[in-house]
């Protein structure tokens, strides 16, 4: 009943072992595994619906619907909760934990190993370039976030962290413009209009991006600590290499 645990479970479970994924797993903008998710019945994270599916085990995030989780536990269903991955080290841990919870520890271990090996092969030497993550409402990632760690791994200094933000937070557009990041990472707008996303097409940001290099990462690859995260990391590494080419 959580986007990230859904994806890890789909990757690690035996056929027939996983009986339902959350509706978010089908959202192409946030889920990296839409096609796989179509094979499963969908739940909306409500305790009633999930209980009626008679699961032996429920995987949830620590922030997902507290009330539903408590209710399910009260009904005697085992619930394993995973905190969101804030560090790259957490990602491999989560793979092992889900593998163990599903009774497939060797598969979780293998996936974690592979992730760690791929991660070790990526790195960047030399001076860091500046980059900023920029999302609707001026939301950005500061220090202590997975994004921040990915940026520094791939040879970037995170403008959000340098602005003094810890965790996620709002960076006013003015301060983003003044920081003149060399790369701006933004998200794909959802269908239907929203004023929150209008900031991403603000003329000032557009001019800034014209001068900066673009990084096209899929949000779906960023949000969760799954093997798909490597796609996002590789894209950022390529963007950094691209900057080198320009200089």
């Amino acid at each position: 009943m959580n986007l990230c645990t859904d994806q890890l479970a789909m990757l690690l479970a035996d056929p027939g072992q996983l009986i339902s994924v959350s509706n978010l797993a089908l959202d192409p903008l946030s889920s990296a595994m839409v096609e796989e998710a179509q094979a499963y019945p969908v739940n909306r994270g409500g305790a009633e619906q999930i209980f009626l599916m008679h699961p032996d085990l429920v995987l949830a995030g620590t922030y997902t619907a507290r009330a539903s989780v408590d209710l399910l536990r009260g009904l005697g269903i085992e619930v394993v909760q995973l905190p969101p991955a804030d560090r790259l080290e957490d990602v491999a841990d989560h793979m092992r934990q889900i593998g163990a919870a599903l009774g497939r520890p060797e598969r979780g271990e293998a996936m974690a190993r592979e992730f760690e090996t791929s991660l070790a092969s990526i790195g960047h030497d030399g001076p860091a370039a500046t980059a900023a993550m920029y999302y609707p409402n001026g939301y950005t990632a500061g220090s202590g976030t997975l994004s921040d760690q990915i940026l520094s791994l791939t040879g970037f200094r995170n403008v959000g962290a340098e602005a003094g933000l810890t965790g996620g937070g709002i960076l006013p557009l003015e301060r983003l413009v003044m920081a003149e990041p060399q790369v701006v990472v933004t998200s794909t707008p959802y269908p239907g209009a929203s004023r929150s996303e209008e900031i991403l097409s603000h003329p000032a940001l557009r001019q800034l991006r014209d001068g900066a290099a673009q990084a096209h990462v899929r949000d779906a690859d960023w949000v969760c600590g799954t093997p798909h995260l490597l796609n996002a990391i590789r894209t950022m590494a390529d963007a950094r290499a691209g900057l080198e080419g320009q200089q």
Binding site: P136, N137, P189, Y190, P191, G192, A193, S194, R195, S196, E197
Partner: peptide, 9 residues
Amino acid sequence: SPNPFAVME
């Protein structure tokens, strides 16, 4: 709205 941000607005 299909847009998750719309509700916050």
